[in-house]
Simulated scan of single mutants.
Amino acid sequence: MAVSGQEARKKWEPWNDPQEKPHVQLVGVSKRFGEFTAVDNISLDIYKGEFFSLLGPSGCGKTTLLRMLAGFEQPSQGQILLEGSDMSGVPPYRRPVNMMFQSYALFPHMSVERNIAFGLKQDKIPNLEIAQRVEEVIELVELGAFAKRKPHQLSGGQRQRVALARALVKKPKMLLLDEPLGALDKKLRAQTQFELMNIQERLGITFVIVTHDQEEAMTVSTRIAVMDHGRIVQVATPTEIYEYPNSRYVAGFIGDVNIVEGRVAEVGDGHLTIASEDSGCSIRARHALDAPVGAAVWIALRPEKLVISMEAPADTRSNCMAGEVWDIGYLGNLSIYHVKLDSGAMITTAKTNRTRDTEQPITWEDRVYLTWTPDAGIVLGQ
């Protein structure tokens, strides 16, 4: 039986295959600028054909790490290996790696095709081969009708594709992207994310992207490394990062989340019962956390996992928070409710607007109940 592309893609997890060798290895890599440590003892494996994201806030070290992969910075300690070869001391222009910057850095006096060909000419590639390779990447990024135009005659999205083509025409083994979509508006940015994914999948080149945009990382990535203060705090697939964060920091950084504090009251078979003053109820949760009775824990609840209703459930003692609607945000497809609990804590919940009725059955100052299933909450110990 034929396997669909989607099924094949789901099964492509080289990081779970002990027989697979990493395409890129970082071994104990640190980078210090004087007394400041920008990257702190990072070890990381990236596999051939991955679309890998380095995600984190400004100043977390992700761009410094990318620049070390490119060769623009040298590690203070540790090794960077590409296909098993140590890149220490190898200058950027001798690495089989190319980098695409947020600014695009196109030559304003050159046409699209001359911008793309520039690096090949510098490498003294024969003219016939240059023409062939430029034609191939122009077709790949769908800029054939714009080949003779100059950058000022192009839209922001078209300039972005020229920069991408210029990076790809040299056939790198790895492409590094530093906030490549930052200059685009939201709609074009979302469209270009899927274009990048399709191009990367067609070429099979390893892409490593730096971004602070969680939605962008979740959309394009095979895996994400979440960074904080120069360290990697979790590496996982987008689904695992969102549904199973390993800390309050990761849970709070990826998407919207409510964090409720409590203490373990009872430990059962695969379940915890948690007493929580913040929520005003006991919380029953499935867990993989080894937490004894009395231990402090935090429960992460995604807004879309909560069900909001004006009717109290049959049992309000467990997994049921009560409060008053404090604020409402209408986003078209969703309505966002801020609910002030009886304890004073503020909880955010989201409700899908399934009909075109603009009248909200739940409105300001209504008494509401927020409920969720035991597997909806994520129990965190740190």
Rank of each mutant, 00 (worst) to 15 (best):
V3A: 04
G5P: 14
G5S: 13
Q6G: 00
E7V: 14
W12Y: 14
P14C: 11
P14W: 11
D17I: 08
D17R: 09
Q25M: 09
L26M: 14
V29R: 01
K31P: 08
D40F: 00
D40H: 07
D45Y: 07
I46H: 02
G49K: 07
C60M: 01
T64P: 10
L65F: 00
M68C: 13
G71I: 04
L81F: 14
M100C: 06
P108Y: 08
E113A: 08
P126E: 13
P126N: 13
R133G: 01
R133H: 01
E139S: 15
L143S: 01
R149A: 10
K150Y: 03
Q153H: 09
Q153W: 02
Q160R: 09
A165C: 06
L175M: 11
L177Y: 03
L181K: 04
L184Y: 01
L188H: 07
M197T: 15
E201N: 12
T206W: 10
H212I: 11
D213V: 06
Q214D: 11
M218K: 01
T222F: 00
G230Y: 02
Q234M: 11
A236M: 01
A236E: 15
T237F: 02
Y242N: 06
P245G: 06
V250I: 13
I254Y: 00
V260A: 07
R263H: 03
A265D: 13
A265G: 08
A265T: 00
S282G: 12
R284K: 15
A285K: 00
H287I: 01
H287G: 06
L289G: 04
A296Y: 09
A296E: 15
A312P: 10
P313S: 08
A314D: 15
S318W: 09
N319K: 07
C320H: 05
S335Q: 10
K340M: 10
K340Q: 14
L341M: 11
D342C: 02
D342S: 11
S343G: 07
K351M: 05
D357H: 02
I362N: 04
G377F: 05
Q382R: 12
